[in-house]
């Protein structure tokens, strides 16, 4: 089983398609919706697929064939190590424990695989060391 995160962008015409339902029924994937937005330009859906590697691959192909722009997301957050003072303010803000304190060095570790791009850490960082990576 693998977990991969994707950003799906689709035009207003296909915004009505029950994409997540098909992902579950046809490809046997577990889906965690991280963010969903829709406006006059269409929809943006950030989600995590959990399933076998081949099923995820097939699902991505299906989405692309349906006219959805699919981009795999590997890194949401960039922590500027020179700016970070390792205070740890981000730790109690993060809902998924993507930030953890190394109790030997007292330095803050960022675990990318746990990050769901909620962005709550960004405006909580006093020295301004955390930025959302531009995903386009």
């Amino acid at each position: 089983m693998t977990v991969k995160k994707f950003l799906l962008t689709f035009s207003p015409e296909i915004a009505g398609e029950p994409i997540t339902y098909r992902m579950v029924r046809d490809f046997d994937l577990m889906i965690n919706i991280l963010r969903a937005e829709i406006d006059e330009h269409g929809g943006r859906l950030m989600l995590a697929f959990e399933g076998s590697g081949s099923q995820i691959q097939k699902a991505v192909r299906y989405l692309e064939d349906s006219g959805v722009n699919v981009k795999e997301l590997k890194e949401f957050i960039r922590k500027d190590e020179a700016r970070c003072t390792n205070c740890g303010m981000c730790i109690s803000i993060c809902p998924t424990a993507a930030y953890q304190m190394d109790r030997k060095t007292w330095k803050v570790m960022f675990l990318n695989e746990k990050c769901i791009a909620c962005g709550m850490c960004i405006d909580s960082c006093p020295p301004g060391a955390i930025r959302l990576r531009t995903q386009d």
Partner: peptide, 20 residues
């Protein structure tokens, strides 16, 4: 990293840097 407040486990953050 956590303390109990009114029976709830609450995550803690330091504002000062222990490493620094």
């Amino acid at each position: 990293g956590q303390i109990e407040i009114n029976g709830k486990n609450v995550k803690t953050s330091s504002l000062s840097s222990y490493a620094k």
